[in-house]
């Protein structure tokens, strides 16, 4: 068992997502940074899809009541065992009685703690991910609280040697300004040409309203093409007739502040979605902190798919490196 001495700001059980229920209005949840999540599991020797802890901004304090193999990846929230710094992106042993804690966040926003065997919580609709807004999945459908006790599961696949670590090329750098690639559309035709350009030129600032549901960004007001609203659309020019929202889609209610929807967001609605963050860069937007800068870069569908293949190839390489070490 792992005892939660302090929960951190928002520490939740997450995996590769509750995929396949989107049309019923159920978002996937799951780790926001799927790359760091997958690498943590590989370093811990877990099967694909094992549940980990997603740590946001401020780490928890966890007492291990059994020996375990762990790996911590993602944003740099420096981990410590019994007060001594331990490396990230590396397979680490922790002993019964040890306390894992974290220092102030240095880089990025979210860290992933994988434990060999995975976090053992019930599987709800094919996933162990926490969806806090509906209170399902994960540990009792909520973020961890002081006094909780987590069980370690049995989804370990291999024994990874202590000290196995990745070379720099596999470790993402998270700065304070983030270039995020998007595909323009589906409803970008609703923005004026000038505002479409400004959307890509501006450096947006991440507001304090940035979580697993979405990231609200501050910059300048954008304008929609005036029109007589069609039947079924709301009266504001930023409204369209309801449509499904892609994960990573960006809407700008009333043209004021863009909101990028993430893993726990509503699955559809009546705001014009002007662009969609490519899946590879969903990993990065989730590592942007409040007050940091975001710039959107327009790419084609081909470039987006290439980026996805590149990420998958990297994960495959990492798997091979870990297995042969």
């Amino acid at each position: 068992m792992i005892k939660v001495l302090k929960p951190g700001l928002q520490t939740t059980v997450q995996d590769d997502g509750r995929v396949g229920f989107y049309e019923t209005g159920m978002p996937p949840s799951g780790a926001v940074d799927q790359y760091s999540y997958a690498v943590a599991n590989l370093l811990a020797g877990n099967k694909k899809g094992a549940a980990v802890l997603e740590i946001t901004y401020m780490g928890p304090e966890l007492e291990f009541q059994q020996d375990a193999t762990i790996a911590i990846t993602g944003g740099n929230i420096p981990p410590k065992i019994n007060g001594e710094a331990v490396p990230m992106w590396e397979t680490v042993k922790i002993n019964r009685g040890d306390v894992l804690s974290f220092d102030f966040v240095k880089q990025g926003a979210r860290s992933y703690l994988a434990i060999a065997g995975g976090i053992d919580v019930p599987v709800i609709m094919d996933s162990r991910s926490t969806y806090t807004l509906c209170g399902i999945g994960g540990f009792n459908g909520r973020a961890l609280q002081e006094g909780d006790a987590l069980s370690i599961g049995d989804v370990q696949e291999t024994d990874v040697k202590e000290g196995t670590r990745l070379t720099e090329e596999y470790v993402p750098e998270f700065s304070t300004s983030h270039e995020i690639r998007v595909i323009i559309g589906l409803c970008s035709y609703r923005l004026t040409e000038e505002s479409k350009q400004r959307f890509l030129e501006l450096e947006w600032t991440v507001t304090p309203e940035a979580n697993r549901v979405g990231y609200r960004l501050k910059g300048e007001r954008l304008d929609f093409v005036p029109r007589e609203q069609p039947f079924g659309a709301g009266s504001n020019p930023s409204n369209v007739v309801d449509l499904g929202y892609p994960i990573g889609s960006i809407q700008i209610p009333d043209g004021v502040e863009p909101i990028a929807l993430l893993n726990d967001a509503v699955t559809g609605g009546g705001y014009a979605t002007v662009a969609t963050i490519i899946s590879t860069d969903l990993n990065r937007i989730g590592q942007a902190k409040t007050n940091e800068k975001v710039k959107f870069v327009s790419v084609s569908l081909e470039e987006a798919l290439k980026a996805r293949q590149e990420t998958n190839r990297k994960l495959e390489e990492i798997k091979n490196i870990i297995q042969s070490s």
């Binding site: 928002q10 304090p208 309203e209 409040t290």
Partner: peptide
């Protein structure tokens, strides 16, 4: 500190 619609 207010962040992510919560107070710490």
């Amino acid at each position: 500190i207010e962040v992510m619609k919560s107070f710490q």
